[in-house]
């Protein structure tokens, strides 16, 4: 079973995403903010990370940087949830591979679809689905 790490400071958001992902057959770990997520990453090896941007202590952007810098070989796929106000910050996203932006309000259905597609692409080695960005 694949594990997804859900990072969001809104309790309810983390909760509903966890429920939805679990129902879709994933195992879910959650963290309240970026810092907590990093600690969890050290112990855990999630197959994907789903994170918010605006969080205390360490926001989503910083988290992405840390994940890529500290675990370069893992190239964990990251889905970043953002409100459209942060469109102007999207240019930093281009610096990273295997990153996907999804706009709030977030649809759990869509997230599950993205993840499913990605993982099935890897398994079957379908061309064009190696990167999360193309999904």
């Amino acid at each position: 079973m694949r594990t997804i790490l859900v990072v969001d400071d809104e309790r309810y958001v983390a909760r509903v995403l966890s429920v939805a992902l679990e129902r879709a057959g994933y195992a879910v770990e959650s963290a309240n903010n970026g810092e907590e997520a990093v600690y969890k990453l050290v112990d855990l090896e999630p197959d994907a990370v789903l994170t918010d941007i605006m969080m205390p202590r360490m926001n989503g952007r910083e988290l992405v940087a840390v994940v890529r810098n500290h675990f370069p070989q893992r190239q964990v796929p990251i889905v970043v949830m953002t409100s459209s106000l942060e469109l102007e910050h999207r240019d930093w996203v281009k610096n990273y591979s295997n990153l996907h932006f999804i706009e709030k309000p977030v649809s759990p259905r869509r997230i599950i679809h993205i993840l499913d597609e990605y993982f099935s692409g890897i398994e079957t080695e379908k061309p064009g689905h190696e990167s999360l960005q193309t999904v």
Binding site: Y12, V13, V16, A20, P105, P108, R109
Partner: peptide, 23 residues
């Protein structure tokens, strides 16, 4: 910007939960 953010957050939650219920 603040207001929008503040409004978005509960809306997000509402959206997600309602979607879950729809499944």
């Amino acid at each position: 910007a603040h207001v929008a953010h503040e409004l978005k957050t509960p809306l997000n939650v509402l959206h997600m939960y309602s979607e879950t219920l729809q499944d």
